[in-house]
Nucleic acid binder design. Sequence first.
DNA 1: TTGAGCCAATTGTCGTACTATATATTCTAT
DNA 2: ATAGAATATATAGTACGACAATTGGCTCAA
Lengths: 264, 264
Amino acid sequence: MEWEKTLHRKMARELALRILRGEYGPESRLPNEEHLLKEFEVSRTVLREAIKTLQAKGLVSVRQKLGATVRASDQWHLFDEDILRWQSEVTPLGEVLSEMLEIRWMIEPMAAALAAERADPEAVGTLLQCVERMSVERLHTPEGQEADLLFHQTIMKSSGNRFVVAMEPVISRALEILFRVTSINPEASEQAQPYHEQIAESIASQNPESAREAYYQLLQHSAAHKDEFLQILGSSPGLPQDLPEGSGSFRGALPPLLQSKIGG
Amino acid sequence: MEWEKTLHRKMARELALRILRGEYGPESRLPNEEHLLKEFEVSRTVLREAIKTLQAKGLVSVRQKLGATVRASDQWHLFDEDILRWQSEVTPLGEVLSEMLEIRWMIEPMAAALAAERADPEAVGTLLQCVERMSVERLHTPEGQEADLLFHQTIMKSSGNRFVVAMEPVISRALEILFRVTSINPEASEQAQPYHEQIAESIASQNPESAREAYYQLLQHSAAHKDEFLQILGSSPGLPQDLPEGSGSFRGALPPLLQSKIGG
DNA sequence: TTGAGCCAATTGTCGTACTATATATTCTAT
DNA sequence: ATAGAATATATAGTACGACAATTGGCTCAA
């Protein structure tokens, strides 16, 4: 990555990983400058720039005399690309993946619907090209994955909503993780293809409702493979028994009510 | 704010504002260190820490020999509290508000549904208290506004989804802006009260679907006042004629398809 | 025209000294 | 003994000045 280049980046990364790992618990204080200076053997400039980075990413808050204290994890800027990357270096993938798919469920179908209204011809062209390439390459090749990524990114950019665009790193990250499944199980990409086609065509013909429905189906399909993936990994799949009876026998990508909405 | 305290924060703020205003266009380079040093009359330490902050917020990317170049606006970390605040200092409110309400439309009803499944008793207690306080104070008093804010924050935290929680700054910002309307037009808060009550009760009784529907209604109500607000401000309200016929006569908080889903 | 190698602009790192701020402690007056 | 004010002290914030490292662009030769 671009992150091993300069000293303060290395240091920011290392400190961030420790925080994400929970080595410095929430509300606890980081070692003070003097201590960190000795441990990392860097200049104070480097140290301070590293801390500034962590601060701007919401990981710590710094006050004079108090030092840098780790913020509660719900204050972290989870949409930051770096944090997303570091997170998945540290956390078991399955844990985050479920939540990512919930977000996709909330955002992307709507984004597709908005895109169907607002996408410019160039974006539509890109979408159709992506579908074309996916039909040739399939998702288990790097080219196919690249096309898939571009497909989703283009839709979000075409939504005309800046906040949707700002979520792009999360969705991209989720896709990258899912690619590991499809490269194991190429069959999955075959099945996903028709949904992609329908989404692209719906947007091209400016049919928001159709785009949205097709997207829900794509995500449902994707969720199935998430569970498969989690089982392969052996990590706890869908959160088992300890949820209230009847609610989520799976806490997965498909919130129950919406599932019912799709099912019919 | 906490942002006028230290020098490098002041400086970061000033530079960020310039970028948000578009004074340094996308892909263009910031003045080099020497220049900025003279203009701001600060030490290089301060300058560099300010730049690090901007970098971590996605506003610029820095490389040796090249200097700091402004990133494309779709790379900015829009969920960062500071950027949100700075943004609304610079941009006409109406422009961002519409997009914020779209996001609310995507996130909050689902979050409420998830909360209905996952909220712990303590959170439910908080929600009921908030509703209670809102019924007494109404939204045009600071206490009432505080309760409203806490209400929405609690729901998002109870969704059990970290990414939903990370969007909290956007929703809070949107509410703060909307408060300006309700303080002009107290009648609005009266009308919103029943929706809040229904949401809280639905979550308390673990009824996701009901919570979600009530939330849609609340947002619809809120959207109406957004338009009112925009008209008061005299800024362009809902994006007028130049959208494809039949799609969005308003580009507002209610994406057409979902509106139909609510209407019946 | 192209490629290798040098040059110079610009950021990256370092060390030290001093200042500002907020917590902790002590002291004083009631 | 207690509350409140003065003081001490730990810690981050700011300031210079010097040198190292990177890299885009230029020169020049093949």
